[in-house]
Design a protein around this nucleic acid. Structure first.
Length: 367
DNA sequence: CCTGCCGTATAAGCCTGCGC
DNA sequence: GCGCAGGCTTATACGGCAGG
């Protein structure tokens, strides 16, 4: 794989026609370049968030090899958590690798121009958190990318992968875990639910949401710029950013997935209008799902946080089910964009909604 | 050109519970 | 009651880009 992003072509420069392979390779390089140029993929998960989620999965870790493939053991709280709880969880081995640092100022002393590899097999019982330096940090030959040969070899030896991967590469990241048939528990964000590839995994029951969704705060490197919202600097000068829609993605079963969502609303056509470009009713809030409606319902993506596959069936999403508005209404009467559901405003114009998941209540017989 | 597609480590409202 | 903060839930506007 090429390491360097392609040089930027001037906007006026005319591109020669490309072969499919060349296009594919450039797209790949661009996404790589974008992820690394943007420098917005370094969000460090708090230990408290890791503890609050991981406590629901204790039974899965006995005698297992855990791999954190986006984690510098010197700063990663995932490494901290698993090394500290190594004996309590009964782990067999803990392996971490990380992408080589791009910034010399990253967390001051913790910068490295080489990618790091560390394997821990326990043995520090009672002495608190093992020191990565004492365990023995090794250096990788390559850049430590989770897709690199070295990382892949370690992935194959692993049972469960737990980390906070770079969101800009989330599709590829998940695709790789599924391709290699690994168990995983990773941090993501709810927007990823609407990605075509990610939604396919969800609808095929290859992955689902973990326990906690919503607000999560992350430490970010010093070179991250300030922003108006969801940003602050703590008393130690550490920069933080937070997300209102962070969530965990996993393919480990959890009790929450089998809890029935209690429904208390009743269907009526006034509160639950039908879409103009798909035969389903709009349910704008997960908590408003009517208890007595047997047909197709469009719900926000956050529904997945409450999804119990025994209670509901997922039929698809507005991205794939929505009929193009050009076939339904006159141009100019609706907001443009990718396929979504629309509601009539009553004055000849139409409101475009955010991506909806279409579900059906399995407990009710369609009449 | 024009049109439609596609996504965004985002961005905002709303609700709730607390202190007073 | 009331105002505020923080958690929880929902959903953007718009630029890039490809194809007609």
């Amino acid at each position: 794989m090429a390491e360097t992003a392609p040089t930027k072509t001037s906007k006026s420069g005319k591109k020669p026609s490309d072969s499919g392979a060349a296009v594919a390779s450039r797209v790949k390089n661009q996404s790589l370049g974008k992820a690394r140029d943007a420098k917005q993929d370094e969000f460090y998960t708090q230990l408290s968030d890791i503890e609050r989620e991981l406590k629901h999965y204790k039974k899965y870790f006995k005698n297992k090899v855990v791999y954190c493939n986006c984690d510098d053991p010197r700063v990663s709280n995932f490494f901290h958590y698993f090394s500290y709880n190594f004996d309590r969880l009964g782990l067999k081995k803990l392996v971490t690798t990380c992408y080589k640092s791009q910034h010399r100022d990253l967390f001051s002393q913790h910068d490295s121009e080489q990618a790091i590899h560390l394997a821990y097999c326990g043995g520090n019982a009672g002495t608190g958190v093992p020191d990565p330096e004492e365990i023995g940090i090794q250096y990788l030959k390559g850049d430590g990318d989770f897709r690199s040969e070295e990382s892949l070899a370690l992935l194959k030896e692993a049972d469960i992968v737990v980390t906070n991967p770079p969101f800009s590469l989330f599709r590829e990241y998940i695709a790789q875990l599924i391709q290699y048939d690994k168990k995983f528990l990773v941090v993501g964000n709810q927007n990823a639910i609407s990605y075509k590839e990610i939604f396919n995994h969800i609808i095929e029951n290859r992955m689902w949401l973990g326990n906690r969704s919503g607000d999560m705060a992350f430490q970010v490197p010093d070179h991250y710029e300030e922003r108006e919202t969801r940003f602050w600097v703590d008393e130690n000068g550490q920069k933080w950013r937070s997300l209102g829609n962070a969530c965990w993605f996993t393919n480990l079963d959890i009790a929450k997935r089998h809890e029935e969502l209690i429904l208390y609303k009743e269907y009526n056509p006034r509160d639950y209008p039908a879409y103009v470009n798909y035969d389903a009713i709009e349910v704008g809030k997960t908590s408003d799902i009517p208890a007595n409606y047997p047909g197709a319902m469009g719900v926000p993506v956050t529904f997945l946080d409450k999804y119990n596959p025994d209670q509901f069936e997922i039929l698809g999403s507005s991205r794939t089910l929505g009929q193009p508005m050009s076939q339904v209404a006159e141009r100019g009467s609706y907001a443009q964009g990718g396929p979504r559901f629309y509601l009539a405003n009553g004055d000849g114009t139409y409101q475009r909604l955010y991506d909806r998941i279409v579900i059906k209540n399995r407990m009710l017989k369609a009449s």
